[in-house]
């Protein structure tokens, strides 16, 4: 979108004119779409792209279910993909038959949330671990105990991101269960542990990069990319992978069921599976992308980052995060309300 075109597009917005020929409307997490890559796509295919933000899978799902908002592409997290599919908001666009699909790293082809990739294409993936300021706490950082049984040094300086699925998963694995367990004995222990640990936490909030860098907080349950950004500002911030189990997530691009610009959307899915384009995404969002060969185009500080490259010995502890069955989710909700009240 050129600046000179801004006012024209505003006029078009008010008029609500029908979608122009070369148009693509992306609905994505905020601050997650590389403007550089979009510019390249616009030039290459002569398509005008709009980007609209959301801040949670649930909001995106609610909006798409209601329909009519004109989005062509959406980027749900892996755990939500089966829900998006069963609620009928994604189009079966068969990206596995697209030209660039061969670039997708084998590990990300046959994923549980979209077997064989009939709906979605990898966008970015990462882990949820624990960022620790090692100048304040010198011990082993690959442990969920830092948050649930915190050492004296960290008490009152801990942040936990308010993501129910990830935090519950971390706690359940810490107490010896598996994600989405419905085992009441485990869940009671989890609830008691969370409630017991809460007074040691300073906050349950997003946006912790600056606070980690400024030592307002000394540890945080966190995304790996955010932890890396904090480290670039303050080298004491290290990222730990809890040995008892940590979650691996992947956000995936898909075409919406009521897309108006299906052909352009297909072009876009194919486009982001090209290594150099996927690398642009990663350089902007600071996460890995699941496209083989993209490493060659990535910034040097990403290729070697310990937050992006999981150490060999800790790879086994990671589990791919999934959505839990409704009856289990109800119990988790009750625990979560109790925790955040």
């Amino acid at each position: 979108m050129k600046r000179t075109a801004l006012l024209t597009s505003l006029a078009a917005l008010i008029a609500g004119t029908a979608q122009a020929e070369g148009q693509l409307n992306i609905y994505n997490w905020g601050n997650y779409t590389s403007p550089e890559m979009i510019e390249k796509f616009e030039k290459e295919f002569d398509i005008a792209v709009t980007i609209t933000d959301y801040d949670s899978n649930d909001t995106a799902l609610a909006k798409l279910k209601a329909g009519g908002s004109g989005f062509d592409i959406v980027v749900p997290s892996g755990a939500y993909v089966p829900i998006f599919i069963s609620e009928g908001v994604l189009m079966k666009s068969n990206p596995n038959e697209m030209e660039n699909f061969s670039n997708v790293t084998p590990r990300w082809v046959d994923v549980e949330f979209d077997p064989g990739r009939e709906y979605t294409v990898p966008w970015q993936w990462g882990t949820v671990g624990i960022s620790v300021n090692t100048s304040i706490y010198g011990g082993d950082i690959d442990s969920a105990a830092l948050v649930f049984d915190p050492p004296e040094e960290l008490k009152g300086k801990i942040n936990v991101i308010p993501e129910m699925i990830d935090v519950m998963g971390l706690a359940i694995h810490y107490m010896g269960g598996e994600q989405c367990t419905g085992d009441k004995d485990v869940l009671v222990k989890v609830r008691d542990k969370l409630v017991e640990a809460k007074p040691s936490w300073l906050s349950m909030a997003y946006g912790n990069i600056d606070k980690l860098a400024n030592v307002d907080i000394a540890a945080s349950v966190n995304w790996n990319g955010a932890s890396m950004r904090a480290r670039l500002q303050n080298e004491d911030v290290k990222f730990g992978y809890p040995q008892t189990g940590y979650s691996i997530w992947m956000d995936n691009a898909a075409i919406t069921a009521d897309a108006q610009n299906v052909e352009n959307a297909r072009l876009f899915l194919n486009f982001i599976m090209l290594p150099e384009n996927a690398a642009m995404l990663s350089n902007f969002a600071r996460y890995a992308n699941g496209i083989t060969g993209s490493e060659a185009f990535m910034d040097a500080d990403m290729a070697s980052a310990p937050e992006i490259n999981i150490p060999e010995n800790l790879q086994g502890a990671g589990y791919i995060s999934k959505s839990c069955p409704p009856e289990v989710q109800k119990i988790y909700s009750q625990i979560w309300t109790e925790l955040t009240k």
Binding site: S56, D58, T59, E163, M164, S333, W336, T337, T340
Partner: peptide
């Protein structure tokens, strides 16, 4: 929360 993560 009810309209979001807790889905109630």
């Amino acid at each position: 929360l009810q309209f979001g993560q807790l889905r109630n």
